[in-house]
Computed example of a mutant assay.
Amino acid sequence: MDWLERIAKLRQWSRNGTRAPHKPLLLLYALGRFQEDPDGDLRYSAVEQDLQRLLTEYGPPHRTTPAYPFHHLVGDGVWEVRTDRGPGSPGTGVRDLRETGATGRLAPELRSALRRDPDLLGRVARSLLDLHFPPSLHGELCEAVGLELDPVVTTVLPAARRQRDGRMRELVLTAYEYRCAFCGYDGRIGAVPVGLEAAHVRWWAFGGPDEAENGLCLCSLHHKLFDKGVLGVGDGHRVLVSQHFVGHSPAAREHVIALAGRPLVGPQPGARPVAAVHRDWHLREVFRGEPRPAAAG
């Protein structure tokens, strides 16, 4: 059985690029626990808070519940649920999962495959990360679910999946003249830029094209905050800062809060700015809460 192919075809609710990473997050969490204890079960009442934190931190901005993937992942053939009454999930109700002692774990065939092939866990995890989250979040997401992955492991995506365009970085950095679009940072060592990255506005995993009008040149800090939903781009191509962000230090105020309402730095004349359709997707699916008012001055 091709487990990478099965993982790539997880059934997820989707409409107009809506993010629904419930199942991938549960699977990543289960892989982290399997790595720690291959014979362990995940009792819903014991892991509910962990799963809710993952959904709050890495899921869509709107309200959601870990009961949904705990039940529905069974239908993808990679997960099983048992209760005090026997095999089978009691449904998506939180109370039902708690009161029946529902426990979940990776499907027996998948657990056997992971034991036979120690490298499979890394390939499955990398596939989930690549297909559902931007690269800037992969490292901290692995830490959040307790996964330790070999950094040399690479994932070959199924042939049906599109491949990234390696020219994206150069297109975006050139369009913004090697300056962070939020703060103007333009550091180099000799002729080589350092700490500058090409950020997808609409994530590649959700149909975002490898084109300059879907990209921003951002410093490493602001790229991470953009992908976490702290920063966004609003009307008039001005920087948005989420009201959910809290920072009291002078550095937090200067490098984040003071950005609210500032116009983007770039792109250069002749280069396409971020397309409205991609800005709207990011505001709907990634940006958290309401924006702060523009900083004084």
Rank of each mutant, 00 (worst) to 15 (best):
D96W: 05
V124K: 14
L129R: 13
V124M: 15
L129E: 14
R116K: 09
A160R: 13
H132I: 03
L149G: 10
H138Y: 07
E143L: 12
L121Y: 11
G146Q: 14
R126Y: 03
P118I: 00
L128V: 14
L131N: 13
R164Q: 07
L129G: 09
P108E: 12
P118W: 00
P135H: 12
H132G: 04
G139W: 04
V152Q: 14
R115T: 03
S136Y: 08
R115I: 00
R105C: 03
H138F: 15
A160E: 06
A107G: 10
E140N: 09
G104V: 00
A159G: 13
D96Y: 05
L157W: 07
R123A: 15
V153P: 03
G146T: 02
R123G: 09
G139F: 05
L120R: 12
A113N: 08
E143C: 03
A159W: 02
R105K: 10
L114E: 07
L129P: 09
C142M: 13
V152I: 06
P134R: 11
F133H: 11
L121D: 08
E109K: 12
D96A: 14
R162W: 00
C142Q: 15
P151C: 09
P158D: 04
R126G: 14
G101S: 05
R95H: 01
L110D: 07
P118G: 11
E143T: 05
D119M: 04
P151N: 11
L147I: 06
R126M: 15
A160P: 02
L106V: 06
L129T: 12
R161F: 02
E148F: 07
L97Q: 09
C142R: 12
R116P: 01
D150G: 05
T103E: 12
R161E: 05
L141C: 10
S112H: 09
P151I: 00
E148P: 00
L137V: 08
V124F: 07
R95E: 06
R111Y: 04
L141R: 12
D130V: 06
A160W: 04
D96K: 12
P158Q: 08
C142L: 11
V156N: 13
F133T: 04
L120A: 10
L157N: 03
T100C: 10
A125N: 09
A102P: 01
V153N: 08
P134N: 13
T103F: 02
R161C: 01
T155Q: 06
L147R: 08
L106R: 09
L131W: 04
C142A: 15
V156S: 13
P118F: 09
V124A: 15
L147T: 05
E143P: 00
H138S: 13
D117R: 11
V94Q: 06
